[in-house]
């Protein structure tokens, strides 16, 4: 049984058991991750009638996502895992969108696109086959008019489902796949201004 948390877009929390999503709560609000995260975890566990200690692992959506919000979910997931002494499974957030599409019967190539703010987007390319999903390119960041893979069907997502994230984590584990990204996928450097030459204050 997994607790899955994603704050790469809005906030989404789920409890999954095998391939089943026992409970899931989500909000598309992209401004209140820190406010809602605690209550959402508590309520989702309640919905699933699961206690923290019966969880086997915590799944964290590692992004890509705008930094401030993304960090809240990863901090929560890592600390929750630490608190119950269970492993953390990091997952690329876009993988959840691809799995959702696959589960809805979509096959072929898709390009998952999410908002990166500052007039940029995050994207990942997937091949959806009969056996499952495979990320073929990305995740990466670009301007909307520079999106690659025009041949792929574009899927714009405003929310990442933590339920799908938990399912992907189980599938990756079942396949024995190693963790890919253990650090947040900001895909963007911090805004810093290097101190330049000192300006005179007197003339």
């Amino acid at each position: 049984m997994f607790l899955a948390i994603d704050t790469s877009a809005g906030t989404s929390v789920a409890v999954t058991d095998g391939d089943r999503v026992l409970a899931e709560r989500s909000t598309e609000d992209t401004m209140r991750h820190a406010e809602v995260i605690g209550e959402m975890i508590e309520a989702t566990l309640d919905d699933a009638a699961v206690t923290p200690n019966s969880l086997d692992a915590v799944v964290a959506g590692m992004g890509p996502g705008p930094f401030t919000g993304l960090r809240v979910g990863i901090a929560a997931a890592r600390t929750f895992a630490w608190g119950i002494a269970r492993p953390l499974i990091p997952v690329v957030s876009h993988d959840a969108v691809a799995l959702e599409q696959w589960s809805a019967g979509v096959r072929g190539g898709i390009l998952v696109v999410t908002d990166a703010r500052r007039r940029e987007v995050y994207w990942s390319a997937y091949a959806l086959g009969d056996l499952g999903t495979e990320r073929t390119d990305g995740p990466a960041l670009c301007r909307p008019d520079e999106l690659p893979h025009p041949e792929l069907r574009r899927v714009d997502a405003t929310q990442i489902s933590a339920g799908q994230l938990g399912r992907i984590a189980r599938i990756r584990r079942a396949q024995g796949l190693p963790d890919e990204f253990t650090e947040p996928l900001y895909l963007r450097s911090p805004d810093v201004t290097m101190p330049g030459a000192r300006k005179r204050v007197s003339r």
Binding site: I37, V72, A75, G83
Partner: peptide, 15 residues
Amino acid sequence: LMVGVGAAKALAVAT
């Protein structure tokens, strides 16, 4: 601040 708040809330619920 948000990193600490997110972590503390998760720790409180987990424990």
